[in-house]
């Protein structure tokens, strides 16, 4: 069968491969090359070695400070989102009335796009801060916690659904055995339930990590980096170097390449680390 199918290579793959090459493969290769060039459009690139990388680390480019802000945000977001989502999942697997309605409501914010979400929260948080005669952009602290709140609101429901699926797979006889052996509730939770849902924890940490690390829309809508780029995350910083000042396109491309390497490496490390903690079932 393989032999007959083999002749149909172009029929089955051509449209996807053309689109994929145009949207990803060629731009990616060109992007790697251009990160070592000075250019304002793709056609006028001149090779200039690692100058873009050196410029990316200068203090005026804001790359390092945006990376710092991003890391600070990502750590807090991962912890809060996962803890809250896991607790909610625990509550929703306790046979409470209306579980489906609760699940539906908690998940809903996840479907609303980042731009719309960002402005919705901007309006609401500004209305609250108005009482103290402040706005979201009067201090980077407001922007930071606003973003944490927003991401929690958006992602808790999503992670909760994955945790619920994980919790439902924990065998009840295991929990009963723990009970008979006299394990307390917290012992059962930490020694039985959590090790058993480790695969869900891996998935959720990975998803929250990559979503918050690459965050752009919400950041743009909520504060757009204000005040004075102090709440600017890496993705926004890169887009601003590309389209903010002419002549900095190469620096933007160099930053993007480093961003890609960091995202890939962190994601890989995280996956390896959490997979180690999983119990064989």
């Amino acid at each position: 069968m393989q032999k007959t199918l083999k002749k149909y290579f172009l029929v089955f793959t051509l449209p996807t491969l053309i689109a994929f090459s145009l949207a990803f493969v060629i731009p990616f290769i060109l992007g790697v090359y251009l990160s070592f060039c000075k250019f304002t459009t793709v056609d006028n690139a001149t090779f200039n070695g690692i100058q873009n990388y050196i410029n990316a680390f200068s203090s005026t480019s804001g790359f390092i400070s945006s990376l710092g802000f991003t890391v600070k945000f990502v750590v807090v977001a991962i912890v809060t989102i996962n803890v809250f989502a896991f607790c909610l999942a625990l509550l929703l697997t306790k046979k409470i009335k209306g579980t489906n309605v609760f699940r539906t409501v908690f998940f809903m914010p996840n479907l609303i796009g980042g731009i719309v979400l960002g402005y919705t929260w901007q309006q609401m948080l500004n209305a609250v801060l108005l009482h103290y005669e402040k706005t979201l952009i009067s201090s980077p602290t407001f922007g930071y916690w606003g973003l944490v709140l927003l991401m929690n609101w958006q992602m808790i429901g999503y992670m909760m659904i994955i945790y619920i699926a994980g919790l439902q797979n924990v065998p009840t006889d295991l929990l009963e055995a723990a009970k008979i052996d006299g394990a307390s509730r917290s012992q059962t939770l930490f020694k039985v339930t959590i090790p058993m849902v480790m695969p869900s924890i891996t998935i959720c940490t990975f998803l929250t990590l990559s979503n918050s690390f690459k965050l752009y829309d919400q950041n743009l809508a909520l504060t757009a980096g204000a005040p004075s780029h102090k709440t600017e995350m890496v993705a926004l910083n890169i887009v601003n170097s590309f389209y903010g000042k002419a002549g900095y396109e190469g620096v933007g491309q160099a930053k993007a390449l480093m961003f890609f390497i960091v995202v890939g490496a962190v994601g890989l490390l995280q996956l390896v680390f959490t997979r180690k903690q999983e119990v064989d079932q």
Partner: peptide
Amino acid sequence: IYFMFAFSMVVPFQMVMFTMVSLA
């Protein structure tokens, strides 16, 4: 080909953004 598709999921959009827009 399979590897390339899987690889593309890890790459942030900003990496291909500028070149892709020029190409488009």
